[in-house]
Write a protein that binds this DNA or RNA. Structure first.
Length: 810
DNA sequence: CAGTGAGCGAGCTTCCGCTTGACTT
């Protein structure tokens, strides 16, 4: 029996610490919070100082009972949860739930998992800080009150099952607001003039320090340059330097992994989790940029031995974000001398990124010599500017360069493209090789990526490292925003080129507004947002969280009573909820587009039961017509013309094999429907303009391609097919596709084996996209009586399960 | 991948933060 029980939050941490402490200590993990507010309405007793009702959730029961048992046996219990608001509350919940006694309970904290840090912590125990616990309770209660009072308002006024909350609603607002900025953005075109001087290796580029709004002005400038003298008017050379970025926090890791590796934030977190669990990196949910002394020394010796002393420079970084609680170190390799390991590709790439960033953060700055050459034009007052940069010492750039988001790359004249300039002298006469004036459009603000949204949230102090990824998922799961690729439009721009004393004009085209993996608001997102902004502006204000955080800080310092603070917030808030419920109109985002030209009836667009749609005619019109909006179309921006287009499809295009062919647009784009089968239209064909023989051709072509993929059929049932798919061979029968396992040869499968495979797949519980079981497995009979109710409750939503089982028959 | 778009009502949904696992498209 161990004398000491030490409890931390994370099991991986527990394992490491156990190794440091020897056999007198048993180190266990609480797996995060062990209690939460009950789900029901009585979780918070509003009338009695917001008293809370907590329970141990089902999945924590086992952890709690094991800890309870160990605590009973131990002489001293060490509560070593993180040193932040949540960590303090975890210690308190442990104290209460495990029935601990003050006499043999110690609260300890450390910010790094190193042996000396742990020993030091054990030598300096304290008691639970109840001010901090109160601050956490205030946070928890406020979030519950906001979330569980606002959401039902949405169910009543917009649509069931929607949600609102302090964090998610602001995240949606950011995306909606950004989209509107983009919509109303008026891009302006101007001619940007660049010149190339010299030839071959001596050639360099310069840019005019002014842009021309009108083509004739640009043309006049180029004209004036014919035969003009170009002189180096001034030459300014000065040293410049560049410093490395701080080591990773959760949010900066998510940003860089998104930019450099193309990872979604949730992918980054799950790969990082694996690295953490296998002991490769320190904890991945952190807002701190600190490195422990151990880490600083290890990084130093790694740098010195690999690159030399002159590359090392010790640095401690300061956290920029005010909301940081810094319970952990920055994200870094556990051992800097580990450069590679066995593991999957994603793990290796993310590790490399973390390693480089952490190492670079302890390296010397890079040194440059930056030259700005100003070039005068004898016939004009304007100047051309050439920027040159020569690296004198690479420093940290030897290892790592932080990338930037697109929207941060400004094509600034003074700091534009830097290249190497040939040796120049003041007054030197230059020979012009070519000059171009290109029409450039100003760009609207960039849409958010998952990662840039996280960055913005962090700047606003909204959300925590452990919630960034889940928040991004929530707002997508609720249908408020979608991450999509959208095609841009082509736009023409003009180019004037001056070469050999003559000016050539041409028109070129570029694609604008194309976006990949960006966050777009949906109609429901916009409607919910507008509703919340109208009725609960205080909550969805960008600075609401910052305001309450300030108060939580005061509570944590004992300067304010948490119940007083919550009361001050809650009473007026609740009043708003009540009046909104009673008086606000239903929100459907309805917008009148105008009049249907043929019938003269009203044409309007709004959200309906099945999503956004256009309607011709008033609500009481018996002849009214509907059409759903298509992907990429929004209530806010759809035009009358686009809406009218929607009524032109589906369209009958002719007969084939005595059956009708119909062209329509579905979720996955335009298609031909024939004899209950779907044939997607190849790109570039206008669905409104498909001829009969063209449609037949498309159908025949698809059939031919399907025949090529066919591996075998069966006499027992000709509708069962084995086909070659994108991911290998599979069985196709009715709507069910079943993958054939790698160890089976698709050519020799018997009908019975196929049937067995199909049946096995049909019987498996289908996992929903978000991990919820849709069709539950037959529940094992031996379950605790207390959970029986919940089991029953969980089963009921699986109404659609039986439908899927019918695949074996018919 | 269709078309659907009324209303009633029972019973459901929902927050943020702290953890890991158990699943696949």
């Amino acid at each position: 029996m161990a004398k000491n029980l030490l409890i931390v939050e994370s099991p991986a941490k527990a394992k490491t610490i156990e190794g440091y402490l020897g056999k007198d200590f048993v180190v266990k993990s609480s797996y995060g919070h062990i209690r939460d507010l009950v789900k029901s309405e009585d979780a918070i007793d509003i009338a009695h100082d917001f008293q809370q009702k907590y329970e141990v959730p089902a999945d924590k029961k086992q952890v709690v009972s094991e800890l309870k048992k160990l605590a009973k046996e131990a002489e001293v219990i060490w509560l070593a949860s993180d040193e932040d608001r949540e960590g303090e509350a975890i210690s308190w919940h442990l104290f209460e739930t495990l029935g601990l006694k003050e006499a043999n309970t110690r609260r300890i904290v450390f910010h790094e998992i190193t042996k000396p840090a742990i020993i030091r912590a054990i030598e300096n125990p304290r008691t639970i800080n109840y001010h901090l616990v109160n601050a956490q309770q205030a946070r928890r209660v406020l979030d519950r009150l906001v979330g569980f009072e606002l959401s039902p308002v949405l169910w009543k006024k917009v649509k069931p099952s929607l949600s609102a909350g302090r964090v998610q609603s602001v995240a949606v607002r950011l995306i909606v607001d950004r989209e509107r900025e983009i919509n109303k953005f008026q891009s302006e075109a101007a001619f940007r003039v660049t010149a190339i001087f010299g030839k071959g290796r001596e050639a360099f580029k310069a840019e005019l320090n002014e842009r021309f709004a009108k083509q004739e002005d640009a043309e006049k400038f180029l004209n004036d340059c014919i035969g003009a003298d170009f002189n180096v008017k001034s030459l300014d050379t000065r040293p410049a330097k560049r410093s490395p970025a701080a080591p990773f926090t959760t949010s900066t890791l998510q940003q860089e992994a998104s930019r450099k590796l193309g990872f979604s934030v949730s992918r980054t977190m799950s790969v990082a989790q694996k690295l953490y669990e296998s002991g490769r990196i320190t904890y991945m949910r952190t807002d701190s940029v600190n490195l422990s002394d151990t880490a600083l020394n290890a990084a130093a010796s790694e740098i010195v031995s690999a690159y030399g002393q002159q590359y090392h420079q010790q640095r401690q970084y300061k956290t920029k974000s005010a909301s940081a609680q810094e319970a952990h170190e920055a994200i870094r390799p556990t051992y800097f001398n580990v450069h590679s390991f066995e593991g999957d590709n994603a793990e290796k790439r993310l590790y490399e990124l973390i390693w480089k960033r952490a190492i670079a953060s302890q390296m010397s700055e890079a040194q440059f010599e930056r030259t700005v050459a100003r070039i005068s034009v004898s016939t004009r007052p304007e100047e051309l500017v050439a920027n040159g940069e020569v690296m004198k010492f690479d420093g940290f750039l030897k290892v790592y360069l932080e990338s930037t988001d697109e929207d941060e790359k400004e094509d600034n004249i003074e700091e534009g493209d830097s290249a190497i300039l040939p040796p120049l002298t003041k007054g030197q006469l230059l020979s012009l090789t070519e000059m171009t004036a290109v029409e450039r459009y100003s760009r609207p603000p960039a849409r958010y990526t998952e990662a840039s949204l996280v960055k913005k949230l962090e700047e606003l102090g909204i959300g925590r490292p452990s919630t960034y990824a889940p928040t991004i998922s929530t707002i997508q799961n609720r249908g408020y925003v979608v991450k999509e690729e959208r095609e841009g439009k082509t736009r023409a721009y003009r180019v004037l080129t001056l070469k050999n004393s003559s000016i050539a004009k041409e028109e070129k085209t570029e694609i604008t507004g194309a976006d990949k993996n960006k966050m777009f608001p949906t109609d429901i997102g916009a409607v919910v947002n507008d509703f919340l902004v109208q009725h609960f502006n205080g909550i969805v204000d960008y600075h609401f969280t910052a305001g309450v955080e300030k108060q939580f800080d005061e509570i944590a310092q004992g300067l304010q009573e948490w119940t007083v603070m919550i009361r001050k917030f809650y009473d007026p808030f609740h009043q708003e909820v009540e009046t909104t419920k009673a008086t606000a109109d239903r929100a459907s985002g309805e917008r009148e587009l105008g009049v249907h030209p043929e019938s003269g009836k009203k044409l309007s667009v709004r959200i309906g039961r099945y999503g956004p749609f256009v309607q011709i005619g008033e609500a009481d019109d018996e002849q009214k017509q509907y059409a759903s909006l298509r992907a990429g179309q929004m209530i806010e921006t759809i035009s009358l013309e686009e809406a009218l287009e929607l009524f032109k499809l589906p369209k009958k295009v002719g007969l084939f094999e005595e059956k009708e062919m119909t062209v329509a647009i579905g979720k996955f784009g335009p298609y031909i429907r024939h004899n209950s089968a779907f044939y997607s239209l190849p790109k570039g064909i206008d669905p409104l303009d498909v001829a009969e023989d063209q449609a037949i051709e498309i159908i025949l072509d698809k059939r031919k391609r399907d025949a090529e993929r066919l591996i075998k059929t069966f006499d027992e049932n000709p509708e069962v097919k084995i086909l070659n798919g994108r991911w290998g061979p599979y069985i196709e029968f009715e709507k069910l596709n079943v993958k054939i396992p790698k160890d089976k040869d698709p050519h020799t499968l018997t009908f019975d084996e196929v049937k067995a495979l199909a049946d096995a797949t049909a019987a498996e519980p289908k996992k929903g996209r978000f991990g919820k079981v849709i069709a539950a497995k037959a529940a094992p009979a031996a379950k605790k009586a207390t959970t029986a109710k919940k089991q029953a409750a969980k089963k009921s939503p699986a109404k659609n399960a039986p439908a899927k089982k019918s695949t074996g028959k018919k």
